[in-house]
């Protein structure tokens, strides 16, 4: 059954590296990729290591006359909070820090335990949550925001990139790779399979 138009489609086996598209609306139904969990785990670990320097270290600093000032991602949200723009501050913090971190943590939890062959019923809701918040992680948009700010400020002051910027670029790259290498279909199939095994072992079915 197609996700986007509800068309019934016959299930068939396909070869490695190919994909199935819905004939009616063109939605990609299934992509055959294997061994994605290990690859994704590697990228997730990289992203998690880079995460903390990326949000707490300074992204860039400016020089204006004798004054200099630097900024990190956390501070960007914090300054809005200090100016009493609570909603905007929460929104910024959520999209640029909380959701990306949360998704990476779920991804790590899942891929790490699945690659060790562990299984727990919490995998199901955590993976659902992972997809649910997908749209709200906006690391890529923030990157564009940094670029635009640099241009806006370039006439006013001298700008120097900080350590946070490099960490941030690495974080962006590895988190994109981590999410795109993972084949959700494979994960769901694996989870379903494990659940069935578990119920058989317990003698419920």
């Amino acid at each position: 059954m197609c996700h986007e138009c509800d068309l019934l489609i016959r299930n068939q086996l396909i070869e490695e590296g190919s994909k199935i598209e819905c004939p009616r609306c063109g939605h990609v139904l299934y992509r055959q990729k294997h061994n994605t969990i290990h690859k994704s785990l590697a990228f997730t670990i990289t992203a998690l290591i880079l995460f903390f320097p990326a949000v707490t270290e300074s992204i860039m600093s400016i020089n204006m006359g004798s004054n200099s000032q630097y900024q990190s991602i956390i501070e960007g949200a914090n300054i809005l909070l200090l100016e009493d723009y609570y909603l905007v501050a929460i929104l910024t913090f959520m999209c640029s820090v909380l959701v990306p971190l949360f998704r990476l943590m779920i991804l790590f939890y899942l891929t790490f335990s699945l690659s060790l062959g562990l299984f727990h019923s919490s995998f199901f809701w955590s993976f659902r949550l992972y997809h649910y918040v997908e749209e709200w992680g906006m690391l890529d948009v923030y990157m564009l925001g940094i670029i635009v700010s640099v241009v806006k400020l370039s006439s006013m002051a001298e700008i120097h990139p900080g350590l946070g910027l490099w960490a941030y670029a690495g974080l962006l790259l590895s988190s994109i790779l981590a999410t795109h290498t993972l084949n959700s279909h494979e994960v769901w199939q694996l989870l379903r399979h494990k659940k069935q095994q578990q119920t058989v072992n317990r003698g419920i079915c």
Binding site: S72, V88, G145, A157
Partner: peptide, 8 residues
């Protein structure tokens, strides 16, 4: 805005 407000 959040970047500029913190930086400048």
């Amino acid at each position: 805005i959040s970047i500029l407000a913190a930086l400048v």
